[in-house]
Amino acid sequence: MIRVLIADDFKLLRDVMRVYLERVGDIEVVDEAPDLNDAIERMKALQPDVIIMNDYLPPIDSAQAAALFREQGFSAAVLVIAMNPEFELIQRAFRSGVDGFMHKDEIDSHLAAAIRSVYRGERYLSPKASDVYNGVHE
């Protein structure tokens, strides 16, 4: 089982991700966190394999949060989900230790695959995030 922590300040979206992940057999949601402090506490306590993180985790953005997780020595792979993926944010996120990046509109079709990919140690970019990163959509 891949043990996952969901960190997003929007409860309904956490609920939606849980519903989708409960449909796959190899991923377990171990807990949820609405902000950075909660996420850090739960990472310490639960040592998840993967953290799914909103591109803004109050009070900082995902690149800053990922850098902080690396400083603290957390081994979890970091998958960022964004409403509006932007080139600069994706680039900064990868440089800060983020492992995967996807658009929230792809949660139904790509979330499980993205989790498995970053869990295996790969760098993951979803189709829509990839279009932004490659300049297909500005």
Binding site: L12, L13, V16, V19, M83, K104, D105, D108
Partner: peptide, 14 residues
């Protein structure tokens, strides 16, 4: 709220 509409869309796709 765009993000709420997104969550509703994702639920409909179930």
């Amino acid at each position: 709220h765009p993000e709420l509409r997104l969550a509703l869309r994702l639920l409909l796709r179930l």
